[in-house]
Nucleic acid binder design. Sequence first.
DNA 1: ATGAAAGCGCTAACAT
DNA 2: ATGTTAGCGCTTTCAT
Lengths: 348, 348
Amino acid sequence: MPVANVTTIQDVARHAEVSASTVSNVLNGRGDRMRPETRERVQAAIAALQFRPSKLAQQLKTGQTPLLGLLVPSMANPMYGFIAREVESCAQERFGLRLLIGSTYRDAAKEAAFFEDMLAHGVRRVIVISSLAEERHLESAVERGMAVMSYDRRATPGQPSAVGHVTPDNFEAGRLATAHLVAHGHRRLAFVTVAGMTMSRRDKMAGFHAAATAAGLAGSAKVLDGGPLDEYGDSVIAEVGRAMGLQLAADPERPTGLVALNDLMALGLMAGLREGGVAVPRQVSVVGIDGLFLAALSNPGLTHVQLPIREMAQAMVEAIAGEGAPPPEQIFRQVRLVERASVAAPPQ
Amino acid sequence: MPVANVTTIQDVARHAEVSASTVSNVLNGRGDRMRPETRERVQAAIAALQFRPSKLAQQLKTGQTPLLGLLVPSMANPMYGFIAREVESCAQERFGLRLLIGSTYRDAAKEAAFFEDMLAHGVRRVIVISSLAEERHLESAVERGMAVMSYDRRATPGQPSAVGHVTPDNFEAGRLATAHLVAHGHRRLAFVTVAGMTMSRRDKMAGFHAAATAAGLAGSAKVLDGGPLDEYGDSVIAEVGRAMGLQLAADPERPTGLVALNDLMALGLMAGLREGGVAVPRQVSVVGIDGLFLAALSNPGLTHVQLPIREMAQAMVEAIAGEGAPPPEQIFRQVRLVERASVAAPPQ
DNA sequence: ATGAAAGCGCTAACAT
DNA sequence: ATGTTAGCGCTTTCAT
């Protein structure tokens, strides 16, 4: 089956009574190489025929595709939707790049397949939000000619990497959230997470422990590990939170101050606690991490640590769309606590 | 700059000591045209060199791109994230199609630019969630060789369309939500929406009015129109809801039963009402439309009309990826009310 | 059973 | 100032 009824550079050339190269020249900003009159004729022909040069053919020739790959755990997770929005608008407005998006559901095979496909599609820049322990596949993508940026991971120390890394200061985010609880008088603290360890989770937990230790609470601070995420990946994280909230509600020895892995988890936690008859923040305080706009809508409003999503998205796009190797590691430290109503003093 | 260090069909041919056409033949399931021994040599070479045929070149030749365009108002809106997830997984698993996504922020120029780009990229199938009044640009995309599916719009009656339409039964959704309020004894009803009319909003409102009329409430039922959405499009819809909730809270004559345009609006409404000191559902009842998982997390849990998102997503992908013209209109009638806790009897 | 050749739509030397 | 040519990586007749 032939390509659709699209006009080609030849059609334009014929219409303007010039050669294809002349058309190509005006297309590529070399209009000064010809008589103004010719240029105008060509431009008129382009307009008349509604000609848009095929990116396919351009790519085949130049090896460059104006496409950016974005790999997220799940598009149904509002957090990634938010990041995707920022990535897209920056990529589009500043660099004229379109977005080719994929969800991995945190599955290594899906992630690998995505990279294969990107390569085959001629996509040479990709941003990955991965939770895989290994980063070898990313390095190998770079070796195959890609520019890749990894979000929410640190560069492996001592191991020079061709992969760029952008991450919020997860340690500080965890610390800030925990310190806020401590400041309100909480002595029984827990960090609530899902099964499976990622680098960013580890950092948030380290921040949690650091704050607890600083308050002399090292002994009592604990980590609560929810169930694993099912095939659907990330939107179920709230379900896990809800189940844990329910479970905590039934436990008279439960912690009074909870730091959630992220806002979705926090929202789920609050729902579970409430269902279990426990009042937030009167009986239990909860703080989230992320900065989802949804946190402002919850009841009580969720106190959380806001991450500089837009800045990070822009940094990733710039690093990947610009020339030269991306910086191996950029840590965004502008994390700040947004107080709402989910934190109060613990019950006496 | 040349294409990256990628192996081509020529490399494979050389490695296997055959011609490129032979390699192409094994690639395209014509392995029976040669000696098994040859085939094996080729396959070994493919594996050894990690060869993936360039989709670019294939496309240029065949005119087919295994890419699906998806145009949404905003990826930051969880509803569209959810739809995108379903579209992606169906497109990928069943048809091997990758997703090229774009946000329009309900802007006609951005929408047009997206279509231009898709065309230039050789993308021949696109799913659009548009709120533009006109559908001419879609028809013209079809004329230019695209298969296009439109979500949440009806086909214009009497006007044969090459564009396929998939939509939930918005009328029934609005009716169901309203009837639920009526069944709980509400007599002062309002449909709460944002500025700007779309086809689906009109249908939901019609359902609202039909239910109100059936209950003898035609006179008192009213439509409340919030502010316009700013550049960011859709995530601010919750903000509009919040502002309206606040406003309603201050109005002693306010309706007691609210049908929100969608779940995000409903969530915002509840937050605004609460901030204004009005209790949901004791003083005001709220019902949403969509079926966001977030509705289960709110406090009180949001009663809403669930739309068959997955089914619709699959239908769109199948219509567009299959052969032949897409059906001009498919209305999905499996809308159902999910009861939670945001509806109760009105205050006496 | 296999290969040579043409061509998809474009770009960029290199002529003229 | 403009045209000719070669070629990007692949598919597909058509020869051999």
